[in-house]
């Protein structure tokens, strides 16, 4: 298969994926025990209110008609109004999603900035004390729940040392980054641990590979070999990991945003559950799944660009 054909096939896969995501979210929303309308209105609903909401949600039509209407709504960006905020769900998500994306992006950046150099230190000192120390620290990081790490950082750096704000988001880009500093470290910690672990193993694997022996035999200096050959190959593995882990990062963002009162989609999700704001929950689940499948696609494309073996 040529690279072009591989690319087209990979792009075409996204269509059935989106359709399946749509079906899953639709089914999920219909699983509400009892009646969705009653769940939304609670005890307060009069018969007239129930009838009006049932009609406005289209729940009086057949299940197939409902599904077609749902797909039309998704395609045209109409996903209903938030019951709590009384504005279109799409507008609400469009306001909040950039916050979560900035948080996740910063978390990935921090994690890579810490994990990549430490992975090299660990791999080049394999099974000596720097390696054991780095691995022990990250092992503890992997075993620490996000909300606990967040609370500790909040207590030490925000409440006691007053170096960072206790929560919120600020108004300018610099204020955003300042406010998201502790949350991003919190969110990035376990990801850094995973990257470190995998990168260390990848470097150890590459160091012993034949082409590195060959490069050394050609007389290339150690640092050149490390940068040009080892780093490049180890990075391919890391890019894959970022793509695979984007889902758990978004899940972690839900908790991080709740701990630090960050106004992103994660906090919106938790708030919506307690407000029984089902249109928001449905739309967010849909939006995040679409986001993840796009991230998978992007990962494959970057991998193809980095690794000439893919798609050949």
């Amino acid at each position: 298969m040529s690279r072009g054909a591989w690319l087209l096939a990979r792009l075409a896969q996204i269509v059935p994926t989106f359709l399946l995501i749509g079906i899953a979210v639709f089914v999920l929303a219909r699983l509400l025990p009892g009646n969705a309308v009653m769940a939304m209105l609670g005890e307060r609903g009069t018969d007239e209110m129930v009838a009006r909401l049932t009609a406005s949600l289209g729940l009086d039509k057949s299940i197939f008609a409902q599904f077609v209407a749902f797909l039309e709504g998704v395609a045209s960006g109409r996903l209903g109004d938030s019951l709590a905020f009384r504005i279109p769900v799409t507008r609400l998500i469009a306001e909040r999603l950039p916050v979560t994306m900035l948080l996740t992006g910063l978390a990935v950046a921090f994690a890579l900035a810490a994990a990549v150099p430490l992975a090299f230190v660990a791999a080049l000192n394999a099974n000596r004390w720097p390696d054991l120390l780095i691995r022990a620290i990250f092992q503890v990081g992997l075993s620490s729940p996000i909300f606990y790490v967040g609370l500790v950082l909040l207590t030490v750096f925000a409440a006691w040392l007053r170096l960072f704000p206790v929560g919120g988001y600020g108004d300018t880009m610099w204020e955003h980054i300042y406010h998201l500093f502790l949350p991003a470290i919190t969110l990035g910690l376990s990801f850094a641990a995973i990257v470190m672990r995998n990168l260390r193993a990848a470097i150890l694997g590459v160091i012993n590979a034949e082409y590195v022996d060959f490069a050394r035999a050609k007389g290339l200096r150690g640092s050149v070999i490390l940068l040009r050959h080892v780093l490049r190959n180890a990075l391919i593995a890391t890019v894959t990991l970022v793509g695979l882990e984007i889902g758990s990062l978004l899940g972690g963002a839900v908790i991080t945003e709740t701990v630090f009162a960050v106004p992103g989609v994660g906090r919106l999700m938790v708030d919506s559950i307690f407000a029984r704001d089902y249109p928001v929950i449905q739309a967010l689940t849909l939006a995040l799944a679409v986001f993840v499948s796009l991230a998978f696609l992007l990962t494959d494309l970057v991998q193809m660009w980095l690794d000439p073996r893919v798609g050949r």
Partner: peptide
């Protein structure tokens, strides 16, 4: 696997 685990 397409859905973020915790979100789902």
């Amino acid at each position: 696997a397409t859905f973020p685990f915790l979100v789902l």
